[in-house]
Simulated scan of single mutants.
Amino acid sequence: MLVNLSSRKKWASLLLINAMMLTTVACGSTEGASSKPAADATAEPSKAAASTPAASEKPNTEEPAQKTDEPLVVYLNDFDEIIKPMFEQATGYKLELVTGNGAEISSRLEAEKGNPHWDVVWMDAMPTIDKMGKDGQLLENWKPQNIGNLTDFAKQFVPSTNSYVPTGAHAASVIVYNTKAFNANTAPKTWKELASATFKGSIGMADPAVAAPAYPFVAWFFQAQGMDAGKQYFESLMKNGLHVYPKNPNVAKALTSGEIKAAALQESNAYIMKNQGQPVDIIWPEEGAPASVRVAAIQKNTKHAEAAKAFIEFLLDPKTQQTLIDKEKRATSSLP
Rank of each mutant, 00 (worst) to 15 (best):
D69I: 02
D124V: 08
S236H: 07
A206N: 08
A103T: 10
Q89F: 02
G226T: 03
F222Y: 15
Q89G: 03
I17R: 14
V218H: 13
W142R: 04
T151H: 09
S202E: 13
A172W: 00
G258Y: 00
F314I: 08
K189W: 07
I282N: 01
T68R: 10
E328V: 08
R8K: 13
Q266F: 10
T99A: 13
K247F: 13
S268L: 09
P37D: 00
K329P: 00
K253G: 06
D281T: 04
E57M: 12
F79T: 05
E140F: 05
M132Y: 00
E306I: 02
A50Y: 11
V25W: 13
A65F: 02
V174I: 06
D124S: 15
I83T: 09
A184F: 02
S51K: 06
A219F: 11
K36E: 05
T24A: 04
A19R: 01
S56R: 14
F314N: 12
C27M: 09
S333A: 15
K239S: 13
L22E: 13
Q276V: 00
T99S: 15
A291N: 06
D326C: 01
D326F: 01
S202G: 01
Q321A: 02
I325V: 07
T179N: 08
Q156I: 05
D69A: 11
K329F: 13
W191A: 10
E110M: 11
P208F: 14
E44F: 09
W122M: 14
Q137S: 10
Y164S: 01
N77E: 06
K231A: 07
V210P: 02
F221P: 10
A171C: 02
S51Y: 10
A154M: 11
N248L: 05
S7K: 12
W11F: 11
D317A: 07
S34T: 06
K303N: 15
E112W: 07
A154R: 13
P53F: 05
H117Q: 15
G32A: 09
K300Q: 14
A310F: 02
P64S: 08
T320N: 00
E44S: 14
W118T: 08
E235N: 15
A103W: 06
H170G: 12
S268D: 14
T91K: 03
L22Y: 09
A206L: 07
K9R: 14
P64K: 09
K300Y: 05
T161D: 15
Y271T: 12
A184E: 09
V244W: 12
P159V: 07
Q278I: 00
C27Y: 12
I260L: 04
T256C: 07
K247R: 15
F157H: 14
V280P: 02
P144Y: 05
T323E: 03
F153D: 08
L14N: 13
E140D: 10
G201Y: 01
L335C: 09
F222W: 12
G133E: 01
A262E: 06
S236W: 05
K84L: 01
T61G: 04
A296F: 04
Q156S: 13
S7H: 14
V120M: 13
I260R: 01
P45A: 05
L2C: 09
L14G: 12
G241A: 10
S51L: 04
I298K: 07
W284M: 05
F182M: 07
S34F: 05
N250S: 14
E267S: 15
P279C: 06
I283K: 15
Q322M: 02
F222E: 02
G230A: 08
A33N: 04
